[in-house]
């Protein structure tokens, strides 16, 4: 399984909790474009079987392959937050960043033909809107460290309670 390589925060989805409703995609596209359009969402849901589903957004990798792949230096990473920004003047929509991303977390805007990447709603006072709206709390803004802590807690609880 591909996991994050990041020290930064990123948006993750718990596939056990995800119900496949796509509300994250509606809210993302509305926040970024003023329209509801899952083709314009920077978080993407995927359902491979009836009961296997999740959502994927940028994992803010360190040494991000998308940045390395970009031949026009259009992508840069914020050293504080890890958010990857697209310089619209430099991007020509060649899609090498899309091919480089192991998570399938980058998409091309069908209108402008330029790359779009999750920025964790850094302009929104209450943080990522997909996380705010997710009806089953499947989405969260987290780091690998915090996920590891939780995994240890869960393991300990199961061992102690035997459930």
């Amino acid at each position: 399984m591909v996991t994050s390589t990041s020290k930064y925060q990123y948006i993750t989805c718990d596939p056990q909790k995800c119900i496949g409703c796509q509300i994250c995609e509606y809210v993302c596209s509305y926040t970024k474009t003023g329209e509801y359009n899952t083709y314009r969402s920077r978080i993407r849901t995927v359902r491979v079987e009836e009961v296997l589903m999740t959502a994927v957004a940028c994992r803010t990798c360190e040494n991000a392959p998308c940045i390395i792949a970009c031949t026009r230096d259009a992508l840069t990473q914020d050293p504080e937050t890890g958010v990857i920004r697209v310089d619209a003047d430099r991007c020509d929509g060649c899609a090498w960043c899309i091919e480089a991303c192991d998570f399938g977390a980058i998409s091309i805007n069908p209108l402008t033909k330029l790359a779009e990447i999750c920025d964790q709603c850094e302009d929104e006072a209450d943080g990522p809107q997909c996380v705010k709206w997710c009806p089953k709390e499947a989405l969260e803004l987290t780091t690998p460290d915090r996920r590891a802590q939780r995994a240890r807690h869960k393991l300990a609880t199961e061992d102690l309670l035997g459930s």
Binding site: G20, C21, P135
Partner: peptide, 17 residues
């Protein structure tokens, strides 16, 4: 029961797979 899933655009999720 395997999982409970939803239709698109539904925050309830009633389908008892």
């Amino acid at each position: 029961k395997v999982k409970i899933i939803a239709c698109a655009q539904c925050p309830i999720a009633c389908e008892q797979m």
